[in-house]
Structures are given as structure tokens and as C-alpha cells.
């Protein structure tokens, strides 16, 4: 009988957890993929009894996974939509948002392209297909080739809502990830793309365009001071969502991400540490 009870107990524990003890599953945004993988490596070095598995797929995939209870943390480069909040709430999931880094979403061109400054209106018109030639924005007389992300990407949605403000041109080539956009623009003198600023850290052959802000100043996404001050128009938080205030190993990992060591990794990966506003929101989310 004892064996039987022990067997049932073991089966129950297996079914209830199925994931190995000490495992944190993170899923979602491709923009955050490299950063969170680095954070996971650093975390595992400090806390070896916890394994952090990090997968991409896009912000939508991650948010869907947290709603379905298939991961512990969802990475997102956009905020959760009202439809997703409703789906989560009815499933008994309370999505809690934490910002782990700041991104200056960067518009990039081939390094051979003399265009170094653009307004948001110009970039929007380029991606809507209304401006088709570089000569219309001060460049050479060459056709513009558009590179962007796929619809499941949070960056795709953010850029569409904030910059394109309409329909992407059907000619835009939809790439799997940020790295693929960097590579494509690097090998295409007529190319333009958008990537998380962290993907410019080791990039060669491309340059980031300065974008005009509301004050009429052209600001580079690589200017940490301006991005942190919110002066760069495409500044956005890089987010994670948990079901309720994070607990257990997931909380330990998030606390590491927000710690000095974690934020140092954020800087090393080319992104910017979270600012005071977000620190306050994070503390509220963590119940501090």
C-alpha cells in the first residue's frame, strides 16, 4: 500500500509540476532574446540550482504562453493588448508588468548611405510606401528597400503604431529577427530597417539614423543620456509579464535582472538600464 501511495504521490507531483524543480521558463520577444539569455547565463552562474530556459517567437507568443500557463515569464517589447488582458483575466491569470530595460528602437541604414537624420513623418512615409526613393529624403537617387519584422513581433506592432501609423507597404520584407534585419541592411546599400538598439552593439556595416524629436532636435538612439531622458522619440521599455506578482525562482530571476549586476548586463548588451519611473512601477509589481 505504501508503495502504491508513494507511486500516486510521485505521479501527482510529476503531473502538477512537470517542469523540473528549479526551472524558470521564459518565452516571447525576439528583441529581448539575446539580452535575457545573457541574463539567464549570469543568473545560473550565481544561482546554479535554478535553470532558466529562454525561447523567442515574438511578444504575442510569449503573452499567449503566460495566459495559457505554459511559461513563467513572458518577454514583450510592447504592452499587453486589452483583448489579451481579457483573455488572461477570464483564465484566472493576472498579468503583472515589469520593465527590465530601456530600448531606443533604432532605424538603420547601410553605412554607405549618407542619410543620417530623418523625421518620424519621413520614416512613416517610407514604411507606408509613400516615399520610395532615397533622393526624397536627402540621399542618392536609388529605390528604398524596406526591412521589418513579422506581425507576431512586438517591435512590428510598436513601430506600426508609433511610426507607420497606417499600413506597412506590402513590399516590406518581413524578417525573422533583429539580427536578420541588421544582416540584410548591411548587405543592401538601399536598405532601411528597424532593430532594438542592443543589436547595434557589435554590428558593422550599418549606421543608426538620428530621429527628430518634438523639440526639433535630431537624437541618436545610441545617446544613452537622451534616451534615458525620453528625448529619443522611439524610446520604449522592454517588458516582462508574470501571472501575479512574481514568486519563487521566477522572482529570484527577475530580482537579479533588476539588480546592479543584471542592469550591468543590460548595458553590456547595448540596451539602457531602467529609469526611475519604471523602478517605482517595478517595485509596486514586486509588492515592495
Amino acid at each position: 500500500m505504501r508503495r502504491l501511495i508513494a507511486g500516486f504521490a510521485a505521479a501527482g507531483m510529476l503531473l502538477a509540476g512537470f517542469a523540473l524543480a528549479g526551472e524558470v521558463m521564459v518565452k516571447g520577444s525576439d528583441t529581448l532574446l539575446n539580452l535575457v539569455q545573457r541574463l539567464a547565463e549570469q543568473f545560473s552562474a550565481v544561482v546554479p540550482d535554478v535553470t532558466v530556459s529562454v525561447t523567442g517567437g515574438g511578444s504575442g507568443v510569449g503573452i499567449n504562453a503566460i495566459i495559457n500557463g505554459e511559461c513563467d515569464i513572458a518577454d514583450a517589447s510592447r504592452e499587453i493588448k486589452s483583448k489579451e488582458v481579457y483573455t488572461a483575466r477570464e483564465a484566472g491569470v493576472n498579468p503583472v508588468q515589469i520593465a527590465i530595460a530601456i530600448d531606443g528602437l533604432s532605424v538603420i541604414v547601410n553605412e554607405g548611405n549618407p542619410v543620417s537624420e530623418l523625421t518620424l513623418e519621413q520614416i512613416g512615409a517610407v514604411y507606408r510606401g509613400e516615399i520610395k526613393n532615397w533622393s526624397e529624403v536627402g540621399g542618392p537617387s536609388r529605390k528604398i528597400t524596406l526591412y521589418g519584422r513579422q506581425p507576431s513581433s512586438g517591435t512590428f506592432v510598436f513601430f506600426r503604431d508609433v511610426v507607420v501609423k497606417g499600413e506597412y507597404a506590402t513590399a516590406m520584407r518581413q524578417m525573422n529577427g533583429n539580427s536578420q534585419i541588421v544582416e540584410a541592411v548591411k548587405s543592401d546599400e538601399t536598405g532601411i530597417g528597424y532593430v532594438g538598439v542592443g543589436y547595434l552593439r557589435d554590428a558593422t556595416g550599418v549606421s543608426a539614423v538620428a530621429v527628430r524629436n518634438e523639440d526639433g532636435e535630431f537624437v541618436s538612439p545610441l545617446d544613452a543620456e537622451q534616451v534615458n531622458a525620453g528625448k529619443y522619440p522611439l524610446t520604449r521599455p522592454l517588458l516582462q509579464y508574470t501571472n501575479g506578482s512574481p514568486k519563487g525562482d521566477a522572482r529570484r530571476f527577475i530580482e537579479f535582472e533588476l539588480s546592479g549586476a543584471g542592469q550591468q548586463v543590460v548595458k553590456e548588451e547595448g540596451f539602457f538600464p531602467v529609469t526611475a519611473d519604471y523602478i517605482e512601477q517595478n517595485e509596486s509589481a514586486l509588492g515592495k
Binding site: 525576439d30 532574446l33 539569455q37 539567464a40 547565463e41 535553470t51 532558466v52 530556459s53 529562454v54 525561447t55 523567442g56 517567437g57 515574438g58 504575442g60 507568443v61 499567449n64 513579422q150 506581425p151 507576431s152 499600413e167 506597412y168 506590402t170 518581413q174 525573422n176 529577427g177
Partner: peptide, 24 residues
């Protein structure tokens, strides 16, 4: 670490989308 790499490879391999865009 291998585990991380495997997951990253899987993530990079997937191409099919949830949402679709005009023309798709």
C-alpha cells in the same frame, strides 16, 4: 548552456505566424 542554445535554435527556426498582414 546547451539547453539555452537548443531553445534559441528552435526559436530561430520557427517562421509561421499567428497574425497576418495585408496581402497575406
Amino acid at each position: 548552456m546547451k539547453r539555452l542554445q537548443v531553445f534559441a535554435a528552435l526559436a530561430a527556426a520557427v517562421t509561421v505566424l499567428f497574425a497576418i498582414e495585408p496581402g497575406q
